[in-house]
Nucleic acid binder design. Structure first.
Lengths: 215, 215
DNA sequence: GTATCATATACCGTATACGATCCGAAGCTT
DNA sequence: AAGCTTCGGATCGTATACGGTATATGATAC
């Protein structure tokens, strides 16, 4: 049992990221450091470190002497992020399928079951579990830089899914695609995994595009 | 004249990054926060923010209660970083060639001249100017996320160039490739730009591979 | 109505303090 | 002698307080 010790700012990164993804804090609104720190029961020093990290991730931006702001969404960024995922994620997931261990398999299976469960209950944080599933599939690829880039891209893309797609309840089709993808992944059919991931992301992008012109 | 106001931690990011790239601080050695802050004449709070950002960039890693360490180099990471650049940089640079303004053109030309000059004098920081040149070529692509990812990849790859290639003085061939690339880029020949960038990165990777097996 | 000034607010950076943790060395046990 | 335990210094992580500075806002003067 290797227990992971995390300092406060590490934990704050996740906490604040979740707040932004769930839309609790609105775009282009200044983040009051003292107020937020007081609300979370920490001082502003670890909070500022967390915000600095989130700025590198692309979720917030900062202006000198003005503070941190949640970055606003834009159709062009959505397009860009999904195109980047299409360039990177299929290959990484396909490679991971070849390298995955038994433990990776069970982890992916469990993650999908959790995602199914949460989807059925229409519970909070479907997006987070969706992210976790895809991450479970590409993480074993053994390429740390690629993994970190993909994780960042996933976070960015989740914002658009939450705003534009989640309300529509298009979970059904996605879940079927997930099952087919997992099956091929477990079977280590790298080629098919690559195609399925590619198709899956493209479909999401198509849905998003349609939704964005409708807006 | 829009003067850019940057706070201390922003400036420290660049300063510490340069120290790491130039090899002043050795790998896997703990960064003494108090000592470094005192040496730089700042307090450790903005320094910690800068280190947090550099950890997101992949240049340092942190262990809770142990501090920040310069990440060590590895052949597999080099390979990975260059493969990622091959996947992203040719397209981005080709797109930028189509979108570049007159100002972008002059900026790229000036940057290459500076690079030539520095190379001739065998001055310090050839790597930094090499980075600046490539950045000048892909920056006008109008895709901020792609640009930030490529900048990160460039920083990571520069470490390997400095250690394994720069001592060999292979600058001549690179400079010829740079000139051909710039010419096609100015002419907005997107297809050729893509091919040249791809070839340029591949050659560097090949050199690197050879050097790494020799090591 | 515009320009200038004063004030309030919030961020930025520093100094300081203190608990928590890590690491190496000394000492003890076996 | 090898291994384990304990201890203390060093460093990190966090909190708090304070001054400096930039921005925004509202009042005043012209």
């Amino acid at each position: 049992m290797s227990l992971i010790i995390r300092n406060l700012s590490d934990q704050l990164v996740d906490l604040v990221r979740d707040r932004i993804l769930s839309g609790v804090v609105s775009s282009d609104h200044a983040i009051r450091q003292d107020a937020l720190a007081a609300e979370l029961g920490v001082s502003k020093i670890p909070l500022r470190e967390a915000l600095a990290r989130l700025e590198e991730e692309g979720l917030v931006r900062s202006q000198a002497n003005r503070g941190f702001f949640v970055r606003s969404l834009s159709a062009s960024e959505a397009q860009e992020v999904y195109e980047l995922r299409i360039k990177l994620e299929p290959d990484a997931t396909a490679l991971a399928a070849k390298l995955a261990t038994e433990a990776d398999h069970t982890h992916a299976i469990v993650t999908l079951e959790t995602l199914d469960h949460v989807t059925d209950e229409h519970g909070e944080g479907v997006g987070a579990f969706n992210r976790a599933f895809h991450r479970a599939l590409f993480r074993p690829c053994g390429q740390p830089v690629t993994v970190s880039i993909l994780e960042r891209l996933q976070v960015l893309s989740e914002r658009y899914v939450r705003v534009h797609l989640e309300p529509l309840g298009r979970d059904e089709r996605a879940n079927e695609e997930h099952r087919a993808l997992l099956k091929a992944w477990i079977a280590r059919d790298a080629d098919q995994v690559g195609e399925l991931v590619d198709a899956h992301i493209r479909k999401t992008l198509d849905d998003l595009r349609q939704q964005l012109v409708d807006d």
